[in-house]
Computed example of a mutant assay.
Amino acid sequence: MSRSVLITGGSRGIGLAIARRMAAAGDRVAVTHRTGEPPKGLLSVQCDITDADQVDVAFKQVEAEHGPVEVLIANAGITKDQLLMRMSEDDFTAVVDTNLTGAFRVVKRASRGMLRAKKGRVVFISSAVALRGEIGQANYAASKAGLIGLARSMARELGLRGITFNVVAPGLTETAMSESLTEEQREHLASQIPLGRLARPEEIAAAVAFLASENASYITGAVLPVDGGAGMGH
């Protein structure tokens, strides 16, 4: 059955891979983007998730085109890496406001329609860094770890309304972000991953599609690592 799906930050990388996977399965897929060219073949709405008014406008547009959002993938995020002693407060709060508070904004808005329908799927895109930490990413790790607490609290709060909340924690993935690494850096990072390579965006998308499907109807509050084994034990 075709569903109304919204993916924040769905214009590139992991978000775009998720969007294409779900559109191929027959869902009516919309993506938010903040800058750049929107992807072809998908409903694209411009939205800065740090602005609650823009979030509301984006949802109204999606609802008008596709109906109330039934599946929300909270994927939008940024990085501002720096060692703690050199990290500005602005860089810390900017990452948390986008990655964590931004997710809160879109989930709160999506929950209106899901509560009325008494069903819904929400998947947060966290990171293996949330579980194991990383030098120079205190802000990013904190924001991504916060998504786990948010998801599990919402799973308890809205579980009786038929809405599930789950988390996918990707490891280092072949995206524009990883392309900025030198070959030496990539080899070093890959050597620390039991499977010996970076993830493909399509592999993350497959996990998200599963958690958003009927096959995962009795899974909520879960954290699914898709990291090649990099975060084992966390």
Rank of each mutant, 00 (worst) to 15 (best):
residue 1 M to S: 06
residue 3 R to N: 13
residue 3 R to G: 06
residue 3 R to Y: 04
residue 5 V to H: 04
residue 5 V to D: 14
residue 7 I to G: 02
residue 8 T to F: 10
residue 11 S to N: 10
residue 14 I to E: 06
residue 16 L to R: 08
residue 21 R to V: 05
residue 25 A to L: 06
residue 25 A to D: 15
residue 30 A to K: 12
residue 31 V to H: 06
residue 37 E to Y: 08
residue 38 P to Y: 15
residue 41 G to I: 12
residue 41 G to W: 12
residue 43 L to M: 14
residue 44 S to I: 06
residue 44 S to V: 09
residue 45 V to C: 06
residue 46 Q to V: 14
residue 51 D to F: 10
residue 52 A to H: 09
residue 52 A to M: 07
residue 53 D to M: 13
residue 55 V to H: 10
residue 69 V to M: 04
residue 75 N to V: 07
residue 78 I to Q: 05
residue 79 T to N: 07
residue 85 M to R: 08
residue 86 R to L: 15
residue 92 F to M: 11
residue 94 A to R: 13
residue 96 V to F: 06
residue 98 T to I: 13
residue 99 N to S: 03
residue 101 T to W: 04
residue 101 T to E: 07
residue 102 G to H: 14
residue 102 G to R: 04
residue 105 R to A: 07
residue 113 G to H: 12
residue 114 M to R: 05
residue 115 L to E: 05
residue 118 K to G: 08
residue 120 G to I: 03
residue 128 A to G: 11
residue 130 A to G: 01
residue 134 E to K: 10
residue 135 I to W: 15
residue 135 I to M: 08
residue 136 G to R: 10
residue 137 Q to W: 11
residue 140 Y to R: 00
residue 143 S to P: 02
residue 147 L to S: 01
residue 149 G to D: 03
residue 150 L to D: 00
residue 156 R to N: 11
residue 158 L to Q: 00
residue 160 L to W: 15
residue 166 N to F: 00
residue 166 N to W: 00
residue 168 V to E: 01
residue 168 V to A: 01
residue 171 G to M: 04
residue 175 T to L: 06
residue 175 T to Y: 11
residue 177 M to K: 15
residue 179 E to P: 10
residue 181 L to K: 10
residue 186 R to Q: 07
residue 188 H to G: 12
residue 190 A to N: 14
residue 192 Q to T: 09
residue 194 P to C: 14
residue 195 L to D: 12
residue 196 G to L: 14
residue 200 R to T: 11
residue 202 E to N: 03
residue 203 E to C: 04
residue 205 A to V: 06
residue 206 A to M: 14
residue 211 L to E: 02
residue 213 S to N: 03
residue 214 E to I: 01
residue 214 E to Y: 00
residue 216 A to P: 00
residue 217 S to D: 14
residue 221 G to Q: 00
residue 221 G to M: 01
residue 223 V to R: 02
residue 225 P to S: 14
residue 225 P to T: 07
residue 226 V to W: 01
residue 227 D to H: 05
residue 229 G to Q: 11
residue 233 G to A: 03
